[in-house]
Design a protein around this nucleic acid. Sequence first.
DNA 1: ATGGTTTGTGTAATCGTGTGCACAATGCAT
DNA 2: ATGCATTGTGCACACGATTACACAAACCAT
Lengths: 332, 332
Amino acid sequence: MSGMSRRRITSKELAKLAGVSSATISRAFSPDSRIGSATRDRILAVAREHGYQPNAIARSLNNQRSRLVALVVNAIGNPCEAEEQQLLVHRLQARQLLPIILCCADHSDRLQLMRLASTYQVDHVVVFSDMVSMQDAVDIFHTTKPIIVSFEPLENENVSSIRIDGAEAADGIIDKIVRDGKKRFAYLSGTNSSWIDKLRRKWFADALTKRGLAFEAQAFGDYSYDSGFKEAVLLLHRDKVDAIICGNDVMAIGARDAARRVLGKNTPDDIAIVGQDGIAMAAWDCNDLTTLSLDHVAFIDAVVELIERHDAEIEGPHSITLTCTARWGSTA
Amino acid sequence: MSGMSRRRITSKELAKLAGVSSATISRAFSPDSRIGSATRDRILAVAREHGYQPNAIARSLNNQRSRLVALVVNAIGNPCEAEEQQLLVHRLQARQLLPIILCCADHSDRLQLMRLASTYQVDHVVVFSDMVSMQDAVDIFHTTKPIIVSFEPLENENVSSIRIDGAEAADGIIDKIVRDGKKRFAYLSGTNSSWIDKLRRKWFADALTKRGLAFEAQAFGDYSYDSGFKEAVLLLHRDKVDAIICGNDVMAIGARDAARRVLGKNTPDDIAIVGQDGIAMAAWDCNDLTTLSLDHVAFIDAVVELIERHDAEIEGPHSITLTCTARWGSTA
DNA sequence: ATGGTTTGTGTAATCGTGTGCACAATGCAT
DNA sequence: ATGCATTGTGCACACGATTACACAAACCAT
C-alpha cells in the first residue's frame, strides 16, 4: 500500500496502470468471468499496490443489487431484541451483507425513516419492531421488491413471516403457578396494543380460561425496567394480584424489584413473576427469572433461511413457525 | 399511491409522465435550485402518485457523498456501548444519515469487514470498539477520507478523537473505599490489553499509589457477566482481596453475584465492588452499583460535534475531552 | 423600443462499474 | 492446411441521478 494517496483510485485509472481496459479490471474482481489467470494476478497485484477496491456504490447501481439490508428495530440497547440483532448482524456479515439499522422507537417519523432507507435500494428488510405496521412497511418497500421478514403474518406475496407459538409453554407455566396456589393474575403489557403483545397475552389468557380463571387486571408499560417497577407497584398494591405475567424480561425484573423493595414480597412464595423473551440476563444469578423464552439461534436461523430463499429467487411468501419453551427460574 | 407497481419508477420515466426533462425532476427534489414553483408542485404531485423517490445509490455516485456512516462496535447487545449506540443512531437519523453497523467482536476478520464497508464510500467512521487498531482503521478508510472518531488519540490528520478523563472521579472512589477500611485491591480487566482498558486501570492505580497502595491482583475477563462472576470467585478466594475494580458494569454485577452467592460476602461491608460505564442497569434497584460513569449524552454530543465539523469541512483533526463522574451506589 | 438581468428549462456530460457483443488469437480435430 | 470451438480482451452502452452550460422567455429600466 503506497501510503498517502488521498483520493480513491478508479477502475479506469488502474486500467491505465496495468495496461488493460477497465472492463478487464472489472473481470479481475468477478470470481467467475472469462479472464486469463496471468492477467488477473497481475491486476490484483497492481490493485493491492494502489489500494484499489471496486466502488460498491457504482457496482450497486449497475447490478441493481446493493447488498444492504435494513433492520427495523425498536431500539438498539433494548435487551429484548439485542441478542437477536447481534446474531443476525453476525450472520449477515458472514454473507457479505451490510446491515443498516433503523431505530424507530425514538424517531418521530418512522415512516419517513423507512422511506429514506428504501431509497438506498436495500435488498432485504427485516422488521423486528412491533411499532411499525406491516402494511406500512410493504407500501414503502414494495417498489424495490425486497423481502420483508417480520413477526406479523400478513397475506402478501412480498412478505415472509416467522410465526411464534408459545401457547403450550405458557400453559405449562400457568399450570405450575396455579398449582402453587396463586389466584389473582395480572398481565403487564409492553405496548399499548401491538400485534405481538396481543398474541402473547392470548397464550396466557387461554391457559387461564382453561382453568376457569382470567386476568384480574391489566397494565401497560413500555418494555423498560422503570415501567415494570412502576406498574407492578400499582398492580400489587391496588389490585392485590399475586401473579404478574410481563411482556418481556426487563419489565419482569423491574416488577420483581418493586415487589421486593416496595411491598416486601418475595418470589415465588408471596408472588409469582413471569418474563418473556429469555434474554441472557434472565439467567443471571441475581435474576433467575421464570420466563417464556424463544431460542434466539433458531429464530435467527429462520430469518437467514428466509433471506436465502429470497436470494435464490424462490417465489412466493414463506412462513416458518417456532415454538417457545419455558425457562424455569426462581420467580414463579 | 397507485398500488401495485412492481418496479421502482425512474427519473426519466417520471419526466415523461410530467412532461418535463429528467433534469427538472432532479431539481424538484433539490431544495434550493432554480425551478418554477408551479412546476415543482406538479412534479411532486405526480411523484407522490407514482411512489417516486430519487435513487440514493445513483445520487451518491454522482455526489461523491453517500450519507452512510460506519459504526465500528464490539457487539450490539453489549450494554456497555448499547446506550451510546442508541443515542448516536438517533442523532444520525435526525440528520438523515444512515448507520451501517460493523460488529467486530464475533467476526473472524475484522479488517476484511472494514474493507467491505469502505467500498461503500461511507462519509464517516465512528470507532467504538477497542478491538480494532486505530492504525488499521486509518489505513483502510483513508482512501475516501472520511472522518474517524475514536476513543484512542492518534496523531493523524484524518482522525479526530474523544479523550476521556476519569482520574479525579477514580480518586474519589478509591478514597471512599480506603476510608471504609479496605486494603487489598484487585483490577478486573475487560480485555487482555486494549488501549482503553489500560487507561482506565491507570486512573485507579494512580489513586492507589498516591495512598501508598497498589493492586494486589489483576484478572482478565471479556466484559461479560459470566467472566465477571468467574474471575471474582478466583480473586476473592485465592487472592483474598476485599475490593474489586471492574472494567465495566456488567462484570461488576457478575462479581457482586459471585461474592454474595459463592463466598457469602456482601457489599459494601465485606467487600467493595466498583463498575465502569454508568449504564442504566447500574441504577436499577437490584444492582445499585457504585461506578465510574460517563455522561452518555455528552459523549454522543461530542461525537456529533466532530461529525458536524467534518461535514462543514473544517480542516484538521479535532479532539474533545470529557471527564467522568462517580455514581455512588451501595456496592462500595 | 432596446439592452441587460433574471428565471425556468432542456441538452449532454459525468460519477465508477458491469456486461453483451465483436473480434483476434489460440487449440484441436480432420 | 482448413474449419470450428474456446479463450481473452476491448468497445460501448447501461445503471439513475446531478449539474455546468446554453438558451428562450419574461421582466425591468432607460
